[in-house]
Design a protein around this nucleic acid. Structure first.
Lengths: 260, 260
DNA sequence: TCAAAAGTGTTTGAATTACACCCATGA
DNA sequence: TCATGGGTGTAATTCAAACACTTTTGA
């Protein structure tokens, strides 16, 4: 029994952030040298008790391999097709996680050969600014390919391409009716930042005016941007108003701050 | 590693069908004599190969315990909290299944002490016509109670109440954008039947006219009701037009045949 | 003074809801 | 003939989408 984690981050360094996923390079066989999702075996029985929870296992593995801090963790799906691991029957409970990617943070692991953030490349062929890239989208039969800076390409280890695709689909669906984007943003942010985050996750553009209208009901202004080295007026700074959001949800409100 | 199945059926005997769930009475400890979801251990290694898939295990267990025929099976969630099974660490991948309940069919199992279909009782306190009843809804902290004809009440075994609640929520959400209802219905049905099915699953009433308008785009009339022992004109009989449905889905159509 | 950025409102059209009537038939 | 069930259409409203202008400020 293993857990695997699809860790999503958004690199925030400049005005056009991009969705990224965290992969580790496998140090051992099988699939030695290939990129894979971080994860590993669940401690089933520590000392008489029944061991750790799956969430705890996911967190632990992430600490060991990538040293990132998790803001959000949710179970995705359980992958258990016989033959998915050549070593024997391995059932993997997949989770997806959201983290706040710090600028330029290249997280270094202790347990894995190499760690890297990968940009997504959609069917449109848009390339990101990461040193690594992941292909997803396309039709379901395409293997999810990854490319490293040297230009060599390979597929992900195990069935991790399937897991990754499932996770991306889920994230994009979940963001429609849940304010998980706020888990990725810093606690205080501008409207444009918020919009860019949504655009990064959905991988398309959103109408600014309609977007503002919908989210502003759940934001509280708490300041004004200061470091103005750009033209235009100072942007207002907001924080998420969970209280108002929860109240709205209770009235069957559906949070969908963008055009479908 | 186990699989547990939440099997939903709709008892179809008369004009007001009701959603039901299939439970088995445990023959052995732990929780001997208590009602539980059908399920059991996955065959991990049959003979050198890697054993059966989780879906196969689910089907097999259902055959052994309840002898029902599955129309639809989908993974629900993996329940793995340490301590959920007193015997040791047991991780359960839960599935939910849809079956066509034949009229009055009281399915008899070979592997379980007793099997029964249970009606749901919502917070409104509406009671069904089944000989058994299950409480769900209420707030999340209520244990899911079941009652048998003798009037004695007890909770479900293990964390099966959680699983059941999760499954019901998922089913009600899934029916919003997927035509799974057609898996439960006989291949040919009248509009009223279809509507009653939706009402049974959603546990509330739907406006007939609006409902008809939306579904009729994906139905083909293929006859007229014959056994008329009731007043009024003969009802038209329809079948589901999967071709047209798939085409619509491709154009980003969302199938939501009732008011939210 | 110009270009870039922040911010706001309105108009139009589509979709959804609510709602009431007619017809057929068996008792 | 009446009560029950099957079937349809329309008006009102709500919601979402598209779209353009004003203001501010740094260079």
């Amino acid at each position: 029994l293993t857990v695997d984690c699809v860790v999503f981050g958004i690199n925030q360094r400049d005005s056009k952030p991009e969705l990224q996923v965290l992969l580790v390079r496998r140090a051992d066989d099988p699939f030695k040298g290939r990129w894979a999702l971080p994860g590993g075996f669940v401690h089933v029985s520590d000392n008489g008790d029944q061991g750790e929870s799956l969430e705890a296992a996911a967190q632990r593995e992430l600490q060991e391999e990538t040293a990132v801090e998790i803001e959000y963790l949710e179970q995705l799906y359980t992958f258990a097709t016989p033959g998915r691991d050549p070593r024997g029957r391995v059932v993997s409970v997949a989770y997806y996680a959201l983290v706040r990617t710090k600028d330029h943070t290249a997280t270094a692991g202790s347990d894995a050969a190499d760690v890297g953030w990968f940009n997504f490349i959609g069917s449109e062929g848009v390339r990101g600014r990461s040193s690594h890239e992941v292909f997803v989208h396309g039709d379901g039969n395409d293997p999810t390919l990854i490319g490293d800076p040297t230009g060599s390409w390979g597929t992900l280890a195990f069935d991790h391409a399937d897991i990754l695709r499932t996770a991306l689909t889920r994230l994009q669906a979940k963001i429609r009716y849940t304010p998980i984007a706020f888990k990725l943003l810093p606690p205080k942010f501008t409207l444009v930042q918020l919009q860019r985050f949504y655009e990064a996750i959905l991988m398309r553009e959103i109408d600014r005016r309609n977007f503002y209208k919908r989210v502003k009901g759940f934001l509280v202004q708490c300041g004004v941007e200061t470091n103005n080295s750009k033209p235009g007026p100072a942007a207002a700074i907001y924080r998420f108003d969970k209280r108002r959001y929860d109240a709205a949800i209770k009235r069957d409100f559906i949070f969908e701050p963008f055009e479908i």
